[in-house]
Nucleic acid binder design. Structure first.
Lengths: 292, 292
DNA sequence: CACATTGATACCGCCGAGGTATCGCCGGGT
DNA sequence: ACCCGGCGATACCTCGGCGGTATCAATGTG
């Protein structure tokens, strides 16, 4: 050790390993399982967390020998730590991508939700003189945010108000009303339009329940669905109803009826990308999109 | 080592230490100075960078024995790595703050640039039933973004189009035109209004040059200034002119004249905060601000 | 009250981060 | 042309800390 090292006033910053360990424990709320998930033994994990607490000077977890719980500070670190780990992963991935020289873009969007807008965008962009290959990635509901944040994707098509654009730069592309989707022949299909309240709790036709970001279904009523096809099937069977953007009607089956719902929230399609992106290809794609 | 460790397919993720080392070298473009700045010797630094390159499978720097330069991938990692390090620091700082139990907010803005808006905001917020202490932090030009990103500040007042809101959530608070500031008695001060072109290159009255984010002045003409007082002094001396938001006129000295410039870009004051903030106090402050 | 579960502690071995000494390369001064 | 000085790379050593196993301590359970 150098004799006159500057000696930083207090703990010289967390290592990502410590963050990964803490996030694992905070998610499992169980040292043993967290250690298993991390591929290490339990004692080093306990020590690492203790050391992290000492270095931060903060109690992160309350442990009894039977249960582990997050403190207030712990839940802050869980949230912020996940974001920080995503940023580190993003740095790694984007660096690797920059090195391979393949300047292709990865666009991510929810399966089935963008109608023909995506097709038009891809066509228009491909016609640009400086366009590069665009890989389209379809993913489940609300997984896009993560992909964009950790560098696996470069750009996304999101839908307000359902998706969150927190932390991204965005441009609005398109706004549209929503329609109720009902089984063909349902009494309400005669109406010219419906209100939210009319569709809210139709007897025997509950709104479906989508999985959360982590793949777990929230508590609540309604049949659990994972994609549009499942949902359409249920509606056709007379077991569910749904409200969705009107552009979806082009993809619906014949045996479904749609009725406009003017008082449903307007769905805005936006193109979103991580801030600080300096990629020319991305800038060109965004320019193309806003000109559509 | 556990006999059946999952064995991650390739390098198990960068450590923040490696990132800090790389950023130091990339900024200095000199291993010796970077090592000195980091408080370590040069050989371990060389090794660490080599190892990082090996683990990423990417060449980050081109070294001849006389010069070090960033590769394309290296500059990506510099940009992304800084953001990642800021996120890690933010996690650390916000966790510490959450633990102390002081839920005070830190608001950051450019010195002298917000006129009375800030005073009104602080008064209105203090009158809210659930308000907490707000620490106001004034900083140099364009330093706010960093403070907000690395967790030293919770919320900022920024000015479009001069500041970047990349990566933050924002709400618009106020928009205003700009005025030209000239020495009292200058011929142009008789006019009712001016155009940008009129003020662009007045003989002997160049626009000033502000430092960049890192404190270094960009190349270019114009006298170098660090704050509004310096600028006013120069204008009063007949050595400079400037264009600034009209709300600044209340803070100007007597010996300066202002003339509206209708074709200057409109300056929008926005309140900005890091995404994912779940603080009730912050939400309340933002609500107050948007209601002004 | 034995027992199982689970986090903490004790102790050990080894990898690797960081140190010093030195080399090889190259540009500039004379 | 030659030597010198600056700089990054290499060689080699030391030691702190990470991860391992064995075990203890606390606590809920039958």
């Amino acid at each position: 050790m150098a004799p006159d090292k500057p000696a930083p006033p207090y703990g010289e910053g967390m290592e990502t390993r410590e963050l990964r360990y803490f996030v694992a424990v905070a998610e499992e709320l169980h040292f043993g399982r967290a250690a298993q998930r991390l591929g290490i033994a339990q004692p080093p994990l306990s020590r690492a967390i203790r050391q992290l607490e000492r270095r931060l000077g903060v109690l992160l977890l309350t442990r009894t020998s039977r249960a582990v719980a997050l403190t207030e500070a712990g839940s802050v670190l869980l949230r912020e730590g996940r974001a920080a780990l995503d940023a580190v992963e993003a740095a790694e991935r984007r660096t690797r991508r920059a090195a391979t020289g393949r300047p292709g873009l990865v666009l991510v969007t929810k399966a089935g939700a963008v109608g023909e807008l995506l097709a038009k965008l891809l066509d228009a962009y491909a016609a640009e003189p400086d366009s590069v290959a665009v890989e389209v990635m379809l993913c489940g509901v609300a997984e896009q945010e993560r992909l964009l944040r950790d560098g696996r994707a470069d750009v996304a098509l999101l839908h307000l108000p359902y998706d969150s654009t927190a932390g991204f730069d965005t441009e609005e592309l398109h706004a549209e009303g929503q329609v109720a989707v009902l089984p063909a022949g349902h009494p309400l299909t005669d109406r010219a339009e419906l209100r939210m309240a009319d569709v809210a709790d139709l007897p025997g036709l509950p709104q479906p329940c989508w999985p959360r970001q982590d793949g777990i279904y929230a508590d609540g009523p309604g049949p659990r669905v994972r994609d549009l096809a499942q949902l359409c099937q249920l509606i056709a069977l007379g077991r569910a109803s749904a409200i969705m953007p009107e552009s979806c009607r082009t993809q619906l089956r014949q045996d479904l009826a749609v009725v406009p719902v003017p008082d449903a929230p307007v769905v805005t399609t936006v193109i979103a990308w991580p801030p600080h992106s300096r990629s020319l290809a991305l800038a060109s794609l965004i320019r193309t999109a806003t000109r559509l």
